[in-house]
Every structure is written in structure tokens, then in C-alpha cells.
Design a protein around this nucleic acid. Structure first.
Lengths: 224, 224
DNA sequence: CCAGCGCGTTAAGAACGCGTAAAAACGGGC
DNA sequence: GCCCGTTTTTACGCGTTCTTAACGCGCTGG
């Protein structure tokens, strides 16, 4: 889920963007001035910023500079000014893109996609953490107390499937058919053997698991 | 030094951009059509592409798609069309920015700076170091104790792929299909032979590798 | 109360993957 | 056509992983 911070002082624009972006699957965070924008960016995880340069409390360039002081989040600038001087200043201050009003919503959406596509690959780090261990999906790594835990292919495959469905119950059939193949959907004792190995490697008390739980007769559940 | 590939079919624009960008410190490579552009991008190191959509031999979108097939180089599109549909198509095809003609040179320069600023930090790190050896990606050089280590093409290709994904597990299939080609995705014994050669050349104790690790049944991992 | 079921644990043989070395095939330069 | 470096095969020993089986435990329903 991508989170967009929209910074604008005109309520109707704010509202229009909120509705439209939300309708396209974005999580929307609003700010009506520069101060609120900087505060919002520091307190929650923002994936991309849409910034109107005309703000009541501070210059839009200051907002860009304030963000760039600690963050590399993509910034798309909206402005009514067509002058190339304004564009140059905003871009050199650290903005990623500059759109002049009036603009089409589909164009803004396309530029949002372009911005998040660039930043996406590096920021999209699927890290799943528990009190006991950490699973790094991207690097195929399991850490426990700073040490890497060695996993066999089957163990990893099983763990990955559970961890990718945090909190959700995964049925025995699904586990078996995705890890061993559809033909093995009835060999439930494989699960017992491998769940035991996972628990011995990852749980503090393998006999009383805290994260890799058994749902008798149904399947298994991973809780972070 | 930043290298710009300019793709345009109008000689006077090509010439004007060449002179101006060169005056601002860029190395300029020119292409008058899509075929030449793709060829140029493959034979030399390009940092950013400036692409006019109106080309004689192929659609500009095809050029974008062709580049995006293997490269993540920033692409700035120039176009006379103001329609938002054209913008959306180009951006979704993989372009990073879209500038409509007529445009100011200073605006283009600012957008060039913004594009290279984003890409710069990650591509400007062609040195990967370990306690044992150093890999210079830019110069295709491997140093060990101040001495250059001779690498065959296959060895280098394999090493480069691993080193470009530090800490990450790279699957056997990915290694085989990127180094030898998709048809070799099952010839896992190639990997054993060449990983052995790399370890003999780079590791202090080839039998107990510290940086080129094997994850049985899954793939290999480089750790710095 | 006990039989049946599902779960967890352990152990051992079979099967597979890995590392190594060395030979054979290939290909480009002279 | 020959030589030399590189790539592709081949073979074998060894360690790891998978599979299978056996056993004990707790819960449930008859």
C-alpha cells in the first residue's frame, strides 16, 4: 500500500485529491501548511509527497529543503506558476517532478506511478519481525539474535509461506500443495516434522511456540 | 562526468542541445532514430536519456520499452503533444519525466540534474570491498592484496551478478539464466565448477569460504 | 474408562546436491 | 593448421537433506 502526503492550502483541492487518490488505492495523508507537512512526514511512513508551492506559512522551497534534510522521499511539486525560473528552483532544491496547474488527474496519477516505481525497489523491504527472530524476505535471510539461521530449501519455503500471511491461518492443504506440490496434499506428517524443525530453530521454547502456532485439524498460523 | 544520450530527428534541435549541454559539462551522445538510440545505449555507458517521441523509424514508446527491458537509466521525454493521454502512456511505459515543447533550456537542465541526482547515489558506487578482495565494477577489475586478479569472462559475469546483490541470496536459476542464458537454467553443475574457481582465486581458504557462500539447494550469496 | 485421532519427537536409510580434479571440446589469434 | 586459454563434460567422494517409520502424549467422544 502506497502512502501519499498531500500538501495544499486550498480545501477543495485537498478534498478532491484525497477522494481521487483514495479511489485509486492510495493511502492519503493531508497537510494544509508546511509545518504540518514536515511534522506528518516525520511521524509516519510516507512513500511520496505531492506539494503545492503556494503555502500560507512558509515557502514551498523551504518545505522541500526541510524534507531533503533527512529524507529521500519522492516529491512532486504542483504550481500555478509556469515560469521556468520557479521550476528550476524547485527541482534544484530537491523536487523530483514539477507539474503546472491546471493538470489532469490521470497525468498526476501517472507521475505518481513513475515516482513510486523509481523509489519502490529499494524501499520495498519486506522485513517481518518478531520478538524472537527476523525474516528478511528480499534477501532470503533469517536472523536470530544477530546471527543468521541456516535454513534448508524446504524449511525456507514453508516459513516463507507462513510469514507472508501474518496472523492468518494457512491450511494444511495449502502448505503441502505449495511447498511439496499438489500431489502431497494428504501427507500431513511432513508438516509435523518440518514445523518441529522450524520451531527448534526459531522459538525460544519449541514445546510452547509463541509465533508458529498449530490450529489442530486445520493448519498453522504465524503471529508476529 | 555525466553522459547524456539525446534522441531526436531534427538536426537543429540535436545540434542546439549538444552545444548547450556540452557547455554545461555533459558528455553528449547523439542518435537520430530509435534504432541508433538503442544501439548507442547498449554500447556505451549512458547516465540519462533525453528522448523526443517523434521519431522516423519507430514509436517513442517502443524506444522506452526497449531501454526498460534491460536498463534503469533515467529517461526524460520531450514532446510537442500536450495531451495528458500521451503523458500517461510515456510515463507508464517507464519514462521518468515528460517535458512539453516549447521548453526553456534551464528547465531541461534542472530536470536533468533532478534525474541524475536520483540515480547518482546508487550507480556511483562501483567499488565493493571485503577483507579479502576488492571488486571494481566500473573498471571490471578485481584486486587482491594490491594485485589484479585475472578473470575469464564467465567468471567475471558470475562474480559481478553476485557482488551487485550483496547480502542477498541469488538463486541458481537466476545465476544460470543471466550468465549462461535461460536455456541453461538446469545446468547447476556449471555453478559448482565456476564457484570453485572464484573461491580459489578470491578466498583465503577456498574450502571454507567467507564471502562466497553456498546455500544448499537454493543458490549462492555474496557477503562483504 | 478406553479407543481413536491428531500432533510432536526422534532416528535411520535413501536420495540428492556440493566440491574437486582432470580430461575433452571449443574458439580465436597467429 | 596449430597453440593456448576458456568452456564444457565427466567421474567420484562426501556431507546434507528428504523421506519414511515408529513411538509417546493429550484430547475427545463413545
Amino acid at each position: 500500500m502506497t502512502t501519499v502526503l498531500i500538501v495544499d492550502d486550498e480545501p477543495q483541492i485537498l478534498r478532491a485529491l484525497q477522494i481521487n487518490l483514495h479511489a485509486h488505492g492510495y493511502t492519503v495523508v493531508l497537510a494544509v501548511n508546511g509545518t504540518a507537512a514536515l511534522a506528518a512526514a516525520q511521524t509516519q511512513a510516507i512513500d511520496v509527497v505531492v506539494l503545492d508551492l503556494g503555502l500560507p506559512d512558509m515557502d514551498g522551497l523551504e518545505v522541500i529543503a526541510g524534507l531533503r534534510g533527512w529524507s529521500e522521499v519522492p516529491i512532486i511539486v504542483l504550481s500555478a506558476r509556469h515560469g521556468s525560473h520557479d521550476k528550476v528552483e524547485a527541482l534544484d532544491a530537491g523536487a523530483d517532478d514539477y507539474v503546472t496547474k491546471p493538470f489532469g488527474l490521470d497525468e498526476l496519477l501517472a507521475r505518481l506511478r513513475a515516482a513510486t516505481r523509481r523509489a519502490g525497489p529499494q524501499s520495498a523491504e519486506p522485513l517481518v519481525e518478531t520478538a524472537e527472530f527476523t525474516v528478511d524476505l528480499a534477501n532470503r535471510l533469517v536472523l536470530r539474535g544477530g546471527e543468521a539461521v541456516r535454513m534448508t530449501p524446504t524449511e525456507w519455503s514453508l516459513l516463507e509461506l507462513l510469514v507472508r500471511n501474518p496472523g492468518r491461518l494457512v491450511s494444511q492443504q495449502q502448505l503441502l500443495s505449495e511447498v511439496w506440490g499438489p500431489a502431497y496434499a494428504k501427507e500431513t506428517h511432513y508438516l509435523r516434522v518440518y514445523m518441529g524443525q522450524l520451531r527448534r530453530k526459531l522459538e525460544a521454547d519449541p514445546a510452547n511456540p509463541a509465533h508458529l502456532l498449530t490450529e489442530a485439524g486445520m493448519g498453522y498460523r504465524f503471529v508476529p
